[in-house]
């Protein structure tokens, strides 16, 4: 339970109890119930309309928040999981394979953190090794070959920090994805579903459309990492989360994110199905829009989009 959820959950419990009591009771409790319901709605709206970036980070990290495998199950059907990078191994931190999105065959690829301790350990808490990124690229190339649009789910605190990952070229694997994705001849929609930590997230994030769930974060460095550099104190992460402008709203305002996918009040972990429904609609719409352009035009637009990001000053603008 998150700090700011405590009061809400207490009120909800009291409301449930009142409702339960009212069933067998001669006393009319409907007025009390109405009043409590009103208070609850009011309180929830207040809390969730003024979430700080750090509170959103906590929502994004909630253990019950739906992850890649959950969204695949809720949105797609007939998913066939494929394994391995054909070079070294299979990385459970990245899940992928073809599936149907309604009537459309697509390739789904995403980072998966795991829910149970066992699952979380087996997929390194969603931090991929180079073989994970190379598997992702292999599946994208497969998608290109058979003209399937690619949908990626971003959910990682970062690429795996380990000796083996460095030995096998973590930087090289990520860079290769950035370069190849920029020219992949099928539509790419990337969705940040929770956490987007640095280059390890970007390696699935070069796309025609970048969507972000309302409470997800995306940043060049984790708030803790930023705080330990800035203040030599990871506990100052809330301040760093403010400074980094890492929320969906801030990134949408800065033109980096194309669309914010709304989460029901309380966050995706309290309403996974409704969140999935919103995302489902957004994915279809994005694919329809991208597919409307011929491939060459689509690639030009993708390049123009990547090319345009940056804020700088020049005394004499060219032209």
């Amino acid at each position: 339970m998150l700090d700011f959820e405590k009061h809400i959950i207490e009120m909800e419990k009291r409301l449930d109890e009142l409702k339960r009591l009212s069933v067998g009771s001669k006393e009319d409790l409907s007025l009390e119930i109405d009043e409590l319901e009103r208070q609850l709605t009011e309180h929830k709206t207040k809390v969730y309309s003024q979430l700080t970036p750090w509170q959103r980070v906590q929502i994004a990290r909630h253990p019950d928040r739906p992850q890649t495998r959950d969204f695949i199950e809720m949105i797609f059907h007939d998913f066939i999981e494929l394994h391995g990078d054909r070079l070294y191994g299979d990385d459970a931190a990245i899940v992928g394979g073809p599936a149907f999105l309604d009537g459309r065959a697509v390739m789904v690829i995403g980072q998966h953190k795991g829910h149970t301790t066992r699952e979380r350990i087996s997929c390194n808490f969603g931090s991929p090794h180079p073989e994970g990124y190379r598997k992702a690229l292999r599946l994208m190339k497969l998608a290109e070959k058979f003209n399937l649009p690619v949908i990626t789910f971003i959910d990682t605190q970062g690429a795996y920090p380990g000796v083996g990952a460095e030995e096998r070229g973590q930087a090289w694997a990520i860079a290769d994805n950035l370069m190849r994705m920029s020219q992949l001849r099928v539509p790419i929609v990337a969705v940040n579903i929770a956490e987007g930590g640095s280059g390890g997230a970007l390696a699935l994030g070069v796309a025609d459309r970048l969507l972000m769930l309302e409470n997800a974060w995306y940043s060049v460095i984790s708030p803790e990492g930023c705080a330990s550099i800035l203040y030599k104190d990871a506990a100052k992460a809330p301040e760093a989360a403010d400074s980094l402008k890492m929320t969906a709203e801030a990134l949408h305002n800065n033109g980096i994110v194309d669309e914010i996918v709304p989460e029901p009040v309380g966050g995706a972990h309290r309403a996974p199905n409704a969140t999935a429904e919103n995302l489902h609609k957004s994915l279809n719409r994005a694919l329809d829009e991208i597919s409307a352009a011929p491939v060459a035009k689509m690639l030009d637009l993708r390049y123009a989009k990547l090319r345009a990001i940056g804020a700088f000053e020049e005394p004499q603008p060219k032209g």
Partner: peptide, 12 residues
């Protein structure tokens, strides 16, 4: 994120 995006820009 402006910085992170430069990685994708230069690679493209």
């Amino acid at each position: 994120m402006f910085s992170l995006a430069q990685m994708a820009k230069t690679s493209a």
